[in-house]
Design a protein around this nucleic acid. Structure first.
Lengths: 200, 200
DNA sequence: GTCTATAGACGGATAGAC
DNA sequence: GTCTATCCGTCTATAGAC
């Protein structure tokens, strides 16, 4: 998922595509997709706009380069989870894997979070960019079932969104990612698997 | 907060500014700020672009028209909460009021959520558009204190974000808003005020 | 693979008539 | 208050030389 780090010497040719993807992700996540022009990306890399078009056929395609991996990971998780028995143990495992994916791709997640409107408008010609909602709903359905009462659906949705948001907010300055992960998992599990707390 | 509803007759003149604000909010929330041109807003209202500029001095100013009210509500909540004792009861009351604000302005919240990148880039000349983060952090600090351990800060953050997200997701097709509100409040309260569940 | 140069489109904003 | 007409900037994307 991460690019190898190089020293100060001349960068090896052939990784240009990867470097474009990386710089674009950083800028898109930080400033926004619409707020970042290809000129800016090119300048940051010390090349020209036209060079970018040698590696990617459009601005949109750069986004696809880093979101498709993330989407595939979530889809794989959904496929795996759908085949599990609906037990407390399996739900916990699902949440743990989900948190792992989000923490592992936290910058992609940040990008998606802060550019929902922009991503949604990206030529869904083949529905390439249906990132958020359908996948969230699929996971909720697996966690509590389709006909679950409102309370259970709300809590499952909250568990997933809270987990992702927490990773986003605290990953940056977390000195111990494992501690954060444990906290988030406990929090999310508690939301889906505490049947009737019944506090006033 | 809502505009009065009129029949089929000719609309009363003088509410044009309010109608612009309303239509803009709908389009900005649905399609995105950058994805919505002033031409589109004008067309939807049956006027021209230039007319919009009579009522608002810029596109950015239209956004300010509906976000400033929302921001003021949150700021008032922060001021109120800062003066409360730090008790379980007060925390619950804070969350309840927060949920009330979000549910009452759920479309504004949707807009802010889906256009974070765009809003951030909006000429923060006077920091008019610092909507999300600082206010969230202020509320977290009031809920658990500044020096609270990571776990408490994460859970308080999760309580607030989960509450807002849940309102956003479920307000649309909730036949009973009060039921939703109770569910969300219970969920959020449980996150900030269950000391050591210690399940494993 | 990377460059220069430019096409082609669209958006925000303004001037001035009515 | 609303219109027509237009300015000016920026952006994506492409053509063609090296």
């Amino acid at each position: 998922m991460n690019e190898p780090a190089y020293g100060d010497g001349p960068r090896p040719r052939g990784d240009t595509r990867a470097r474009i993807r990386q710089v674009a992700l950083e800028l898109f996540a930080e400033q926004g997709y619409e707020q970042t022009s290809l000129r800016e990306i090119a300048e940051r890399l010390g090349v020209t706009k036209a060079a970018l078009y040698y590696h990617f056929k459009s601005k949109e395609d750069i986004v696809a380069a880093f979101t498709e991996d993330y989407g595939a990971e979530i889809d794989a998780l959904i496929a795996w989870a759908a085949a599990q028995p609906r037990t407390t143990q399996a739900r916990r495992e699902l949440l743990d894997r989900y948190i792992g994916i989000v923490m592992g791709s936290s910058e992609v997640f940040r990008f998606l979070e802060r550019n929902q409107a922009a991503v949604k408008g990206l030529e869904g010609g083949k529905r390439r960019f249906e990132q958020f909602r359908p996948r969230l709903e699929a996971l909720v359905q697996i966690l509590v079932g389709q006909q679950a009462p409102l309370r259970e659906r709300v809590r499952a949705t909250a568990a997933l969104t809270a987990a992702s948001m927490s990773c986003m907010f605290f990953m940056k300055d977390a000195d111990d990612p494992e501690e954060l992960r444990a906290i988030v998992l406990e929090l999310a599990s508690g939301l889906v698997d505490v049947p009737t707390p019944q506090l006033s």
